[in-house]
């Protein structure tokens, strides 16, 4: 079908984006002060001279810039993102090992934010200008203005330090040796606060978008048509307006995917969540630029993937989209 051919085009257009990130990375390395080899080895100069020399050869740093560029791209496409001297492990391995927890955190925050944001947005729009709308709107405004990391710290103060309901940090309690179902519950308990801290901002955002979108649909001609057919208000809302109003939320979700990763870096740092965010923070502390660039590359690929999923959902929901 033509609509899915459009998806094929989007897939094709994802490749230049990935390529573009590599180009950007290459320029960032050259932008950094000092010798590229020492930059790649970690700025603090902790790398041994042998290792620096190895890098020099591998990236052809004594050869012309254009050749260096192609070597860099070729290495990256082989998924060779270099070696982290600090962590004594290949960058790609380090990132892959941490990808799972980050994905779990992001997906949980993302899906909860979309689901509840949509729901609250509809509730606010239905009860427009009532006290319920006012409460939702004020709460939304506050969540929308709260810095993610501070919210995380405040949650710790309240729920861990004072109430002692939830664990402060980490992915699970390894010391307890939980297995199966119990382990799942334990991880879930560790997840509550990070997910809340990361998700509340987006929850607020989607609530705002959904509310505005629903109100916009209220004035549409097709709503009057549905009324003229004798359809009930509830069904007009669920059967007609909801899907139309949801499309802008979906678009926004795609746009925000990149920011979600940025948020998870901060949240992981606050809660000691063993994902790529914490990895990035550690790389930041030791100025391990190459590892940071690797994380940037992988997260950007992740965003491209999320965008493709959003695109597929949009195509499934909106028959008008076609190549």
């Amino acid at each position: 079908m033509r609509r899915w051919r459009y998806f094929g085009y989007r897939l094709l257009f994802a490749l230049p984006v990935v390529f573009g990130i590599l180009v950007l990375n290459f320029f960032l390395i050259r932008l950094a002060p000092g010798d590229a080899a020492s930059v790649l080895a970690g700025e603090s100069g902790a790398a041994s001279p042998e290792y620096t020399e190895l890098l020099r050869q591998k990236f052809g740093l004594d050869r012309p810039v254009i050749e260096q560029f192609f070597l860099y791209i070729a290495n990256a496409l082989r998924f060779d993102l270099g070696f982290s001297f600090r962590n004594d492990a290949p960058v790609s391995e380090l990132i892959l090992a941490r990808l799972g927890p980050t994905l779990l955190l992001m997906l949980a925050a993302f899906s909860l934010a979309v689901a509840f944001g949509t729901l609250l947005g509809v509730l606010a729009a239905v009860a427009r200008n009532s006290w319920r709308d006012a409460v939702i709107s004020v709460a939304t405004l506050i969540c929308y203005a709260t810095p993610v990391f501070w919210l995380g710290l405040m949650l710790i103060v309240v729920f861990s330090v004072n109430l002692a309901w939830l664990p402060t940090s980490g992915f699970e309690d390894i010391g307890q040796g939980y297995e199966g179902w119990e382990r799942g519950v334990d991880i879930a308990r560790h997840m509550v606060m990070p997910v809340a801290a990361l998700g509340l901002f987006y929850l607020a955002l989607y609530t705002r978008v959904m509310r505005a979108s629903m109100l916009e649909q209220t004035g549409m001609d097709y709503v009057v048509t549905a009324r003229a057919k004798g359809q009930s208000e509830g069904r007009i809302m669920l059967g007609h307006m909801l899907r139309n109003a949801f499309l802008p939320v979906l678009t926004m979700a795609g746009v925000q995917a990149g920011n979600l990763i940025g948020g998870s870096v901060v949240v992981e740092t606050v809660f000691g969540w063993p994902g790529i965010g914490t990895l990035a923070f550690n790389a930041l502390q030791s100025r391990d630029l190459n590892l940071l660039l690797g994380i940037f590359f992988i997260s950007a690929c992740l965003v491209v993937a999320i965008n493709l999923i959003v695109e597929a959902l949009t195509i499934a929901l909106d028959p008008r989209i076609q190549a």
Partner: peptide, 11 residues
């Protein structure tokens, strides 16, 4: 109605 495009639900 006057404008059948907007009077019909596009989805």
């Amino acid at each position: 109605f006057q404008e059948p495009m907007t009077a019909l639900n596009p989805l």
